[in-house]
Design a protein around this nucleic acid. Sequence first.
DNA 1: CGCCTCTTTGATAAAAGTCAATCAGGGTGG
DNA 2: CCACCCTGATTGACTTTTATCAAAGAGGCG
Lengths: 225, 225
Amino acid sequence: MLNAICLPLGMSRNDVLVMDELIKERVRLAKGAALYSLGDPVEAIYGIRYGSLKTQVQNASGQMQVTGFLLPGEVVGLDSLSDERHGSHAISLEDSEVCVIHLDEMDELAPRLPVLQTQLRRLMGKEITRSHQLVMTLGSLRSEQRLAAFLLNLSQRLSTLGYSPHEFLLRMSRQEIGNFLGLTLETVSRLFSRFARDGLIRVQQREVQILDMDALRVLSGTDCG
Amino acid sequence: MLNAICLPLGMSRNDVLVMDELIKERVRLAKGAALYSLGDPVEAIYGIRYGSLKTQVQNASGQMQVTGFLLPGEVVGLDSLSDERHGSHAISLEDSEVCVIHLDEMDELAPRLPVLQTQLRRLMGKEITRSHQLVMTLGSLRSEQRLAAFLLNLSQRLSTLGYSPHEFLLRMSRQEIGNFLGLTLETVSRLFSRFARDGLIRVQQREVQILDMDALRVLSGTDCG
DNA sequence: CGCCTCTTTGATAAAAGTCAATCAGGGTGG
DNA sequence: CCACCCTGATTGACTTTTATCAAAGAGGCG
């Protein structure tokens, strides 16, 4: 069960036992705490058990860009895997817990457990796809489409976790959403209000209720047509 | 020598010999030809020997987003590695040649050549970093900063290949640059003209000469300060 | 030479950002 | 327990940036 959260693999029972070796360690994070920061040595990847995190990169002039919001069952730390030190920050958006998968232990286990290599490759591939998707969002969608796509994406992922896709609590601020989507916090706020006025959603601070999923899909423009 | 172009590794001489097994096949691409397209089965990754390519993703409504321009020595096909089929297109910008590294052959060799796994991991990590960098550019830079950063990046990579960092030929159209940077082709064209008027560059159609690298760096805002 | 594609430039419109003033909630200390 | 304060959210007025539409110019190739 814990494994299901920490590495959602297609593994045999035996493989799972071996895996248990890897995920003994867990870390609890208070809201706002950093799982790792820019410049920290890269030692592990992390599976989120509960809570949520954001990842953000920082350029030479100190500017931040949120690159993702991570939910339970998702894996943090896949960027920077090619480097000695982290090129990004991972920060908890609420009280969270992650399980730690140490890279050196993983490399030791790899020969006995080839599925591990495959799995890591798959996870990194998914991260590349996710990032390209974000590039597409930032590069070619207008503000309202970006926010619509954001809400649909969140809804879909929460649904996968067994939560309602129609009603959820945003764990990030307008500022963070705006930064993620390449918009200002004011624009995000205005869009929420507009969506509510148009009957697409209901919104009260961070509580969101999706009233018309289809309209949101059409608006996002990622739908066929 | 070919290996240096096809997989710039830190390999022993022996490793290189084993590698030779992998990169026997080469593919030549005419300008505009697709190395692979969305939906094609994922069978290999490709090292560029000469020429240049663009990669682009496509959403459900058919909209395209250029996610990268690739130069000799760089590796194409790292996205989609988690999937059965390609989620993007790779298209040659000029007559080009790539060497083919078949994934099944690579998996066979992997046990004998652990460095291969490491190298693949490194390449995928680099791709994630590159994509996050692009997200940062699209999410937080203004148009002139984006174009400045684009030119500097290209200049730097060409320099690594032994070409002049001050003078080069753009292999892609204004349209493609604009799509990559989340701008219209007109905006890109105007920016080129403005940069030229301000003495930062000289530009004649696709021929670019960088006159003031430092000013360009300051403008890009990715510099310290 | 003439056609075709790509590029440049201008005029105008639309989108999103900036600045500023409330407004709402949540937590803290009197 | 309530008032206060602090942070985050909303809304408005206005500016800036970028897109859109349109027309003309530059190469390249048959």
